[in-house]
C-alpha cells in the first residue's frame, strides 16, 4: 500500500490545511496523546537542522512513538556512496514513517515515489518545507482568529525566501492582501505575481514599509543575506532598510503580530522581543503541535 505523503505545500487543499490546524489546536490543549504507540518513525537528516529535527522528534515522542535515524551524513552509509533510493528502500522496510531533510531539491518527492510508506518532507534544499508553512498558518490563525481577509506584509528577501513563497501559495486560499517590501534585487518573482493576478488577489509592492505599517495584520520578516548581493555596497545600503525596531510598531494595529521563520540575524531588533506583538518564539513552539497533526494526518490515524 502506498502511503500518503506531505512533500509540497500545494499537495494540500484548503480543507486539508484547516483539518491540520484544527488537529494542531487539539494537540496544543493536550500534547500527550499515545496515538503512535507501537510505531517507529525514521528521521533522516542529510543536512543538519537541529531545530526542525528536534521539533519532529519531540512530536513523535509526545505521541508515544519511537524514533530512529541520523542527523549527520558523516556517520551514515551515505558517505560510502549509497544512493538515496537504496537508503529509502531499505529504511522503509523498518519503520512506519520517514521524515527527511535532504540538500537536493526534489529528493523528497522522489523518495515518496519509491517508498511504500509515507514521507514527510522536512526541507529539500531551497525547494519546499511544508511543515514550516503550516505552522505559519497556525500562528496566523491563532493570533488573528481567522485566516480570511488579512493584510500580510512580507519583508526582506522575497526572491530566494522559500518560506514566503510557500506562505503566499497557502494564504492565497483565504483572500489576503499582500504587501511586498524588498530591495530591488530581491523582489517577489514574477511567476508568483502572475499567479496572484490570475486568482484576483491584491498585492502592493514597495521598498519602504514604514509609511504603511499601520495597515498590517501580519508582519512576516525574512533574512536579507549578504551572499545574495553581487555588490557589497548594495548590501550595505539595503540591510538596514529591512530591520524592524520597536518604535516602528508604535502606531500599528493592536492585533498585528511579527513572525519570522528563525534563525534571525539582525532584521528584527532585540528591542522588539519583549513587545507583545512579537510572536516568533511562540511561532516556533506552535511547530510542535502542527508537526504532531501532520504526522497523524499522513498516517491517517486522526
Amino acid at each position: 500500500m502506498k502511503g500518503k505523503s506531505l512533500i509540497s505545500i500545494t499537495d494540500y487543499s484548503k480543507e486539508d490545511y484547516l483539518e491540520i490546524l484544527d488537529s494542531a489546536a487539539d494537540f496544543e490543549k493536550n500534547p500527550d496523546q499515545p496515538l503512535l504507540q507501537g510505531k517507529v518513525v525514521a528521521t533522516l537528516f542529510y543536512e543538519p537542522s537541529t531545530r526542525t529535527r528536534l521539533s519532529f522528534e519531540t512530536a513523535v515522542q509526545r505521541l508515544g512513538g519511537k524514533v530512529i535515524g541520523f542527523s549527520d551524513v558523516n556517520s551514515s552509509s551515505v558517505t560510502k556512496g549509497e544512493t538515496l533510493k537504496d537508503t529509502i528502500k531499505i529504511i522503509s522496510n523498518y519503520v512506519d514513517l520517514i521524515i527527511m531533510r535532504h540538500p537536493m531539491e526534489g529528493s523528497a518527492r522522489y523518495a515518496s515515489e519509491i517508498s511504500d510508506i509515507s514521507i514527510i518532507n522536512a526541507g529539500d534544499g531551497a525547494n519546499q518545507h511544508p511543515s514550516q508553512t503550516l505552522l505559519d498558518l497556525y500562528s496566523i490563525r491563532k493570533t488573528q482568529g481567522t485566516l480570511e481577509n488579512l493584510n500580510v506584509f512580507m519583508i526582506g528577501d522575497l526572491k530566494y525566501g522559500r518560506t514566503v513563497h510557500s506562505l503566499l501559495m497557502a494564504m492565497s486560499h483565504f483572500k489576503p492582501t499582500f504587501y511586498f517590501f524588498s530591495p530591488e534585487a530581491l523582489r517577489m518573482p514574477s511567476g508568483y505575481k502572475h499567479f496572484l493576478k490570475e486568482k484576483g488577489i491584491k498585492f502592493v509592492e514597495g521598498s519602504d514599509f514604514v509609511p504603511v505599517i499601520q495597515e498590517a495584520d501580519i508582519i512576516y520578516m525574512t533574512r536579507v543575506q549578504k551572499e545574495r548581493f553581487s555588490d557589497p555596497i548594495e548590501y550595505e545600503k539595503n540591510k538596514s532598510v529591512y530591520v524592524l525596531n520597536n518604535a516602528m510598531l508604535e502606531h500599528t494595529r493592536p492585533n498585528v503580530r511579527v513572525l519570522h521563520p528563525l534563525p534571525r540575524v539582525n532584521e528584527i531588533n532585540l528591542d522588539v522581543d519583549d513587545n507583545p506583538k512579537a510572536y516568533y518564539y511562540d511561532q516556533a513552539r506552535n511547530g510542535l503541535y502542527v508537526r504532531q497533526a501532520i504526522i497523524c494526518k499522513v498516517l491517517g490515524i486522526k
Binding site: L84, K85, P103, M104, E105, G106, R109, Y110
Partner: peptide, 14 residues
C-alpha cells in the same frame, strides 16, 4: 534535462 544543478534528477538516476 532539469536546469537546476541541485535537482535530484541531476544527481541520481531518476
Amino acid at each position: 534535462r532539469c536546469l537546476n544543478p541541485k535537482c535530484i534528477t541531476n544527481n541520481e538516476k531518476v
